[in-house]
Amino acid sequence: MSEIQFRNPGWAGNTGEFDLTEADVRGTDYVGETQLDGGHPSVSASLPYMLVEKNPEAPLFEGPYQERFEKIRSRYPTARAALLPALNLAQELRGHISPATMDEVAELLGLSNAYVRGVATFYTMYNKRPVGRFLIQVCTNISCNICGADEVLAAFLEHTGTEPGETSSDGNFTVVEAECLAACGFPTCVQINSRYFEDVSAADVPAVLERLKSES
């Protein structure tokens, strides 16, 4: 964990009353990466970062990923139902869902590639293009918007030197606008990879970015 001080520790529910670090709350063993086998389902969805290096050329699927894919396939009655988690897995591995990935997943599940494209493009959480090491999603929906989300977004873009959806030249950051992240009580909410940063103001942005860089 970084030593950089800033107001917002970056995990949900911190009201400043306790002096706990994230590692204190979650334990250290899984902070910072997704376990290869996906880990226990109870935590796999709440992992804070997914910093495992992505390889857009990684094969679909091999070794532990193959096992996870088999598990996904066996958990659902139809191939269509298994498509969402299968795409998740592919994205975890490759970082984004390219047309070639859609085609491969379609082939693996016996679905038409057009159908897979339809599903992948319906959900904004599938990256259809490569993204930086940190995907910064700034909520600009009502609550956050009232509390200055536009400035927060502008600050992220300014400090990363990017346009929305573009990846910074060091490959670290991609900033996008997001619709409601369901943290309306803590505006502005910014989701960075799998973690929520709450109560973010434009002034917090440089420190947040510094911390991310120090972790990358």
Partner: peptide
């Protein structure tokens, strides 16, 4: 029985399309 068409994207951005240029 040749599922070549699909809805791509959603909301007001939704269009009918095939798998990219196929």
């Amino acid at each position: 029985r040749d599922s070549r068409l699909t809805v791509v994207e959603r909301g007001s951005r939704a269009v009918i399309d095939t798998f990219f240029d196929s």
